[in-house]
Amino acid sequence: MNCDAASERMLDWIDDRLTESERASMLAHLNGCPACRSELRDLERVQQQLGSLPVPEPSAGLRRNFYEQLETFKEEAKPRPVRKFFQTNGFRAAAACLLMAVGIGVGYWLSERSASRQQVDELSEQVRDMRQMMMLSLLENPSATERLRAVSYTRDLNEVNDKVLDALLTTLNNDPNPNVRLVTLEALVQLGSDPRVRQGLVKALGYQDSPLVQVALADAMVRLQEKRSVKPLRRLLRRENLNDLVKTKIEQSIKDLS
């Protein structure tokens, strides 16, 4: 064994890791080599010094902390019961946040909705105004067809203002076309719950000369059970050149109303 080989085996010598034969040849080399003996002595001293390095005991805190940590891991690893989950502060906080968000959302949505409803209301009001204006202007149209169309629009009007009512009554009394007057009468009867309409219709009895309209008016009076119409109806009966058919109809109507 040479010095290099001996040097390589010195740690194993110290650690007692050599085989019996290695040990024997090492011992033989060391006996004849002072340099290696010296080296080994130094190495042993280093080893001794290293071994003298004390390691303090870990504090009790290490063990305590470890087992606390272990408990935390065990908690996390456990499949949590649902009820427990609902009881956690985290869940409560999340639920509160969610509720608040939903509240805000609904509030926002409602305000949006009411805003859009307001817009729709405004829009439909504008449409109604436009339709009224169109109706009023159409009623003055020379074409009877257009005037019929105008009257038909009133069916879509839920509320009728004075302007429209006046226009309709004027049409009923003055329109040259009996068809327009009949349609207008129909439209007005639809609005029969309005006292102004009833009054207008009673008055209209005196203006009508078309037998068709006269009969329709008489019918309308019966339908609306307008007692105030009896007098004008009687006056109508006294008219000369009254159609016999109309005469019978009116007499019947007076009878129904009294």
Binding site: M10, L11, L43, V46, L50
Partner: peptide, 12 residues
């Protein structure tokens, strides 16, 4: 290990 040990010895 051998080298480290020798290095430590040297330093000491």
């Amino acid at each position: 290990v051998h080298r480290a040990m020798n290095e430590l010895k040297k330093v000491l």
